Structure formats: structure tokens, C-alpha cells
Simulated scan of single mutants.
Amino acid sequence: MNKKQWQGWGPDEQAEQHYLVQPRALAGGGDVRHVSAFLRASGWRDKSKKDGPLLMESPDRTVRVAYDPCILPGGWTIHGRAGDATVEWSAHLGRQTPVEIVAGLTDALTRPRSAHAPNVWAPLQEQNWHTRFADQNYTATSPDGAAWMQYRQDADGAAMWWTGAKDEQGNGWTAHFTPNTPMHLVQAFSTELAGPDPVMRPRGRVPHSAQIRTWSVSVKPSQLSAWQQARITAARAATWARTSARSTRPRTTARPYNPAGGARTRH
């Protein structure tokens, strides 16, 4: 990095042009570090090879998150084991799936499961998505018609979750989840899919689409860094809290009986 570039981080740093993009489902892929940095801060292992695709592994080694843009069709693959560890599930998300939506699922992998029964459709209905049931397929479509979420079954009874977004020119992405994907993860994904807030993209990374709305904003590099660091700090704090709770949990097993006056052994 040359001296001119470094000046952007000093007291006289210059604001850079970014764009807020709405709807978020058509905002393009974004920076994969939005996903990977959070997982790393949550204690996940980075198993990526040098100059190779991204590969992250959960602390208990039951889930892997990979991103490879160089293969066809390319994109995200999340693979895990559920229940008794013999049931496998997977999710495949296209290369242009916005990282903010991907993070809905991957962030949820780092958190304890809620005691409440998950409902994939609730976040969509709260944002006024249109729902319909036809031919054993239950579908929810965004108000602008650009994005959808569907639970579909074929004639043989095979089922899967299918979702995605496309503009009128056919640009966009699709994703699918195997039917045994934990429901709370699919709900976490649908929550971000339906999220009404715009997402930010740097100049030159905004898709060309007549169906998106953009607002130009000036952002200083230090502001971007602070926002990114806040997300990482939150992940570290949550991981520390969970680890501390486990380490300070009171013992529930009874201590060995020691007769009165008997010798005590120090351990």
C-alpha cells in the first residue's frame, strides 16, 4: 500500500462513495469476510488452504462452511450433522447471494438454539410477503416479486427448501436446503432474506438492475472499520459468555462420602 493510500486512514482521511441498496436480495454478493470474520471470532477454525477457497469448521467439527467462486455454479456450501450426529444436512447458496443474508444462517450456527419452535414463514409474513399453497408447494413471494421462499415436494415425495431472487433481466441467485436442515437455521435465513433494511456496497460493486433503488452515501474508512469491528467484538463477547457459563456451571455429581475423622486427600 503506498503513501497516498495510507493517507485515507489518517486524521485527514477522505470519505469514500458507497451505496445503500434496496431490496437487499438483489444487492449482489458483497464481501465474504462479513461471514468468515464473524465465524473466526466465534471460535471457528479457518481450514482454508493458501490461495484456495474459504473453508471454516465449527469448534465441535460438526459443521463446515465453504465458499468457492471459481467452480460452477460456485457459491456457498454449508454441511452439517444434526441430532444424533448420523443425520446429515446441507445448504447450497449461489455466488450472488448477499453476504448479509448468508450470515443469517451462518451467524445462527454460532448461537444456542432457541427454546421456541421455529417458524420459517413468520418473518416473511411480518414483511407482507404473499403466501400460497399449490401442488404440495408452499410459496412466499416478496411484495415486489423479486424474491421467493418455497417448500416443495415432487411426485415421489422428495422435499426441499428452495429460495432465491431475480430481477427482470434474470440476474440474481438461487439456494436450496435439504429438508432435514434444522428449521431454526432456515428461519434465521428467511429473517434476513425478508429484512427491509438496505445493505451497503462500494462504488463499482452495485448490480446493474432496474429493480433496485440506491442512495449514495459518503463513508470514511475508519467508519467502515468501526462497523466491522463492532460485529467481530459482538461475536467474541458472545463466545466468551458461553465459554464462561460452561466453565462456572455448578457440579451436579455427588462428592465421595468421607467418614468423620477420615483422612482427606488433596487433589
Rank of each mutant, 00 (worst) to 15 (best):
T139E: 12
E100C: 11
G30Q: 04
A115S: 08
I212Q: 03
K4F: 05
T214C: 09
G75S: 05
P221S: 03
T97S: 01
P98K: 03
A234F: 13
A260Y: 15
R255I: 08
P112V: 06
P182Q: 05
N137R: 14
S225T: 12
R203F: 13
G164L: 01
A254T: 04
M149E: 03
G262N: 11
W6Q: 10
V120E: 02
I101Q: 02
Y19G: 00
Q22S: 15
R205P: 00
N2T: 05
G262R: 14
R40P: 01
V217N: 10
H176C: 09
H92I: 13
R81Q: 14
K49M: 13
E100D: 14
L93G: 00
D51S: 06
H176G: 06
N2W: 09
P123I: 02
A254V: 04
Q125I: 10
K49C: 13
A194F: 03
E100W: 09
K4Q: 13
L26K: 02
L193A: 02
A115N: 10
W227I: 00
A27E: 03
R246E: 11
R264F: 10
G172K: 01
I101V: 05
R64H: 12
I71C: 10
W6S: 09
H18G: 05
A260G: 09
M160K: 04
T239V: 09
Q211Y: 08
Q223Y: 03
D60G: 04
K50W: 14
G204Y: 10
I212F: 03
Q136K: 14
Q169V: 04
A234K: 04
D167N: 12
T97I: 03
G145K: 11
L72W: 14
K50L: 10
P182S: 06
E168I: 06
V217A: 10
W6V: 08
M160D: 04
W215T: 15
T265F: 13
Q229I: 11
E88I: 01
C70A: 13
H176M: 05
W89V: 04
N258T: 14
V21T: 00
P250G: 14
T77S: 12
A235P: 04
S42F: 03
T110G: 09
S58V: 05
D31K: 00
A237F: 13
A82E: 07
R264E: 15
L193T: 00
T248N: 12
A245N: 08
W44K: 01
L224C: 05
I71E: 07
A158R: 07
S225Y: 05
G104I: 00
R45E: 10
K49S: 08
G83Q: 11
Q14D: 13
A155L: 15
R203V: 10
R113E: 09
N137W: 15
Q150W: 07
E126M: 15
P207G: 00
S225H: 12
Q223M: 07
E126S: 07
T77D: 07
S114F: 06
R231N: 04
R266D: 13
D51E: 08
R81S: 07
Q22I: 09
W9K: 07
W44N: 03
G74A: 06
A245Q: 14
L193V: 05
F189N: 01
G145I: 09
G80W: 00
